[in-house]
Every structure is written in structure tokens, then in C-alpha cells.
Design a binder for these strands. Sequence first.
RNA 1: CGGGGCGUGGCGCAGCUUGGUAGCGCGGGUGCUUUGGGAGCACUAGGUCGCAGGUUCGAAUCCUGUCGCCCCGACCA
Length: 596
Amino acid sequence: MRVSRLMLNTLRDVPAEADIISHQLLVRGGFIKRLTGGIYAYMPLLWKVLKKITLIVEEELSTKGCLQTLLPQLQPSEIWEKSGRWKSYTQGEGIMFSLKDRQGKELGLGPTHEEVITQIISQTIHSYKQLPINIFQIQTKFRDEIRPRFGLMRSREFIMKDAYSFHENENDLKSTYAEMRDAYQNIFTKCGLDFVCVEADSGAIGGAASQEFMVTADSGEDLILISPDGKYGANQEKAVSIFEEGELLKPNKPSIIETPNQKTIDELCNNNNFHPSQIVKVLTYLAVCDDNKKYPALVSIRGDQEINDIKLSNEISQKLKQNVIDIRIITNEDIQKQGISQIPFGFIGPDLSDNLLSEAKQWEQKFIRIADNSVKDLKSFICGNNIKDEHRIFYNWNLINTEQMICDIRKAKPGDSCIHDKTQKLQESKGIEIGHIFQLGTKYSESLNATFTNEKGIEDHFWMGCYGIGISRLAQAAVEQNHDDLGIIWPASIAPYEVIIIIANIKNNDQKFLAEDIYQKLIKSRVDALIDDRDERAGIKFKDADLIGIPWRIVAGREASSGMVELHNRKAKTTELLDLKSVLKKLSEEFNTEKL
RNA sequence: CGGGGCGUGGCGCAGCUUGGUAGCGCGGGUGCUUUGGGAGCACUAGGUCGCAGGUUCGAAUCCUGUCGCCCCGACCA
């Protein structure tokens, strides 16, 4: 390709729309153009990058026996109603764009394709003999993000690779899941990314096991916790750890103490010389569920620990056997609206009476009582007395005498000890999620009634897995991780072009002919080459080449008359003076090793 | 949706407080000079100041409404 024909339009100034470096560089380099909030045109340079990523993905997946398909983006509401996701995906904070056709029929613009593929597979596959199936597509997805940002990182229209697998049993699902994890490792490695695979919460998609692939970068939106030995890594939403034993309170005669206005753990500790770990902290939450009911929850955790809302939400969801749509702390305003006269916030104990809820207008009138593992073994503790300005000391669970659901709802923190090895302390890091793999189980096959006949001749529901890669996000993540002051430094495997040949002065025929000669030879040997044939000053061409991040640069300049050119490596910043033959030899060696 | 900020030639911004009919840098075009790290000079094209009302002799500037964009939170590949 010739730069004169590339409609290259680079910007010197940092565009106001962009905040993070990768977004700025993609705009400045002319890789993307915004059409409106969260919707971008992929310009020719970026499209080349996306195609290279796509190729790597396709190759790797086809080695694993995946089929490729292309599914409809416009999807009827019926299948989403069957899976129970229509309402939650289109109403309120729902992320699905939806519309009505002229007949008034409701359609959605696919944010994901579980429903579509499940229906198609169930209509096509009837016997265990045809299983397993692993099928994927690379397709534009639509999500009405509440707040699109960071360019391609969180956009409303983006390219995603989504794969779905179908199995006769859980074991088979697990083996494909492992294969896919392996494929993902290869894909991201080939894309030249520095990444980690971490345990993840499966969120709205649901299901059992799930892992995320994170590109580590400070601008990442996710907080991940990793053990230094590399044996454990998890998204903070999911992370588990061992909590410190804390300062145990020696058992003594249970009694009530006056704690005027001491509502917080800090105030309580400062005024009475307690340690936070001696206190059972009790918080009130409100969970809004699929059935539109609102469930109050009373949550106990050790005073020095924090609650992980995601874990809490999952536990409540499991207990109620339905989705928790929203979970938040109950405020004074909430209880006033409900007509509840008084909840002694700051002085609540795990045994706060359900009677307080009897006046609630819209809430369920019974607390879901949950206690974190961190409090279950405490033999003696401090907690609220359910009366303003009073706490109880030297109490224990026998005296509390209410049934608690005991589980892990604690937020793991950097510095905590790891489960697999107490000497390993969790370290935190920011990550950009570029891939996510799930073991869905039978959730969708049951709701959509997708079955096959098993070996025993009995109808059975498919076991399913699903596997995503954010293709367009990956491209930007690569920039976020690979750049310098001058611009982008694309990993060679996904660079829009592998080599750029610069003719320092287009009016100099020696330079021009030599450059053209090299260009033709490179093209012939299938090197993806760009030639900058513009009638511009050399400086401009150097700046542009650096900005758009082409890994190798050949300059036909001063030494052109003696047949010599410069070969410069963008990343290593090394330059050598070589003759035509040596350049070709060197590059072909580079690409052969890198392309393999 | 809550909180903060911004809409002025293609891009980045000034002007707005104190109304008088729009300016700077980059970019574009032409010419001359220059030619290995975003050149210099000269000329030139390009703007209903987001939109709609209102106040006023007069509005980019003041008032009201509205739309859009960006940043911080909930969503996620």
C-alpha cells in the first residue's frame, strides 16, 4: 500500500474526546473516527489490525475443532422471553437495544447470542452421537452501555468473537472449557500481549466456573488480585483469601455497654479501646429480585473486613433461587419511605427483630440473615444491642440465637494470604478484560428447552459453555500496553503493516527507485509493506511512521546512491545500514520466526 | 440516572465576567524558498458561535428550555 493512497490523516494535537493514551493514539493515528457516543468507524488501518487479530483467532480455534458461523443480529423477543432475559435486558438498566417492526413485533439487537445459538443447535442436533459441538462467530455486538468510554474499550457497537459449546455431560464441557482456555492462552500470546488468566464471577450470563483474561494496564477497569507465585489470580469480585486471625476478645461475662453516638467501627474502637476484629459489624442491604420483590438482608461480618457486594448478591440469589437485579445498602430515606419507624443504624446486632419490618409497605417482612465466615468462629465478640447508643460485649452466637446463613461474602484485599499457600500475599493490579470463558451448565438449555437424546435413549438437556473475546477491545488494549512518547508500537503479529518504507526525498530518483525496488520485492515475498511516497519532508514521514506504530522501517535516504538503506526497529529503536539483499534477508528471517 | 465539566471553521483553543456582529495555533489550497525528525514567507479558502425561544436598537456574550459530548459512580467483551 502507498501512504499517498491510504487516506492517512494524523493529528498533532491530542483530541479532546480521548482520555487514556490508547484512545488518544488511535484517534491521532487515524485508526478510529467517532460517529457518536460509543460508536466508532474502524478506519482502514485499524481494520487491518482487526483482520490480523481475527485471523489468529480463527486459526487457533479451528485447530481446536471449532466451527465458524455468522448469526443474526436482529433477534425476536420470544427467545429472550423464554430464557427469561428479555425484561432485564431491555428495561431499566438493560443493555439491549430493542425496537418494534411495522407489525409491532418486538426485536432486539444482539448483545450476545446464547438464545439464538441454543435454539439453532437444539433444532439441528438430536443425538449424543453428534456431540460435542463448538461453534463460534466474529460479529458486531450491540450494547446500550450506560456510559460508553475510552474509545473501543467500552463502546456500544463492538466486534466480539463468541463461541458456544454443547455437550452431553459436565465432564465433556469441562474438557472443552480447558481446551478453550488453552486456545485463549495461545491467541493472546500470539497477539503479543502481556496478560493473566483469573478466576471470575460469571455475572449476568450465569453459570458455574468462569475465568477472565486480563491485559494488565493501569487504565484497566477491573481490579485483579494475583499471587506472586502465579498460582492464583482472581478478579476482586470473585477473589478469596485467608483473613488474619485478628485480636481475639477473651470470653467474659456478657454485658451491655453504653456507646453514645458511637456508630462506626472507628468510633467504637477509639472510645473503648477495642480492636475492629473484635466487633461483629452488621449491615442492612436491600436486594431487588427478578420477581420484583424487595428483600431486606441483615449481613454480619467482622469489623475489620469489608463486604463484597457481588458475592453477597450471588449468595442471596442462590438462597432465593432467582436473580438479584440490584443490591444496595438500606438508607434512612428508604425506611422512611417504607414507613418503618426506626432501625437503630450503627447499633444493630445480628439478631435485629423482623418485627421492625412489619410496617414495610413494599418490602418482604423478614430479614435474610447472612453471616460471613469471618465471624462464625468468634467465641466472644462485641455487637450492637439493637437499641440506640448501646452495644453488647463478650457475646457469642448462642446468646444471639438466630439462624444465620454462613458463607463467604468477604472482600479479599491486597496483602491477604492466599488459600493455596499462606506465605503468598495477594498483590493487586488493574486489568482490561479481553476474554471471558464460562461453563454455563444447563441454564440456557433448560430455559429454552434444548434437548438431545442421550446414550440411554432419554431426552436430556445440553451442557453448555460460552467463550468471548473482545476483538476491537483487544486491539486497543494492545496499544494501551505497547506505546512510547512517539506513538504506538504494534506487536508485529497484529500490526497494520509489517514494514514501512520511507523515501526521504521523493524528488531524489536514487532514493525513489531503490525504495520502489524494495517495496516490490517485499510484496512479492508476501511481506505486508507500506511505502511512504508522499511529497512531504522526511520529518513528517518519520513522525507518522512512529505514530502509527509500524514495527519495521526502511529508509531510502542519503545512502541510496550507493544502494544502502536504513533498517530501523520501532520497538528496540535500533538502526542498521544495510544493502538491499541484507535487508530482505534479515526481514524474511524476522517474519518467518514471528509468523510461525 | 446521580455528581462535575464542555459545545465557537476539519482538529486544539481564546473571546463570554463588562452585549456592538468572530480571532489564534494546527490542518487545507496556491506560489517561492527549504528538504533526515511535525520548515519559513506570502497569498487564499473555510464559521447559521450545538439547537430553539426570550430580553435588547443590537446576543457567541444575558435569561429559559432543549440536544449532544467528555469525566467520576452502577453495566461489561
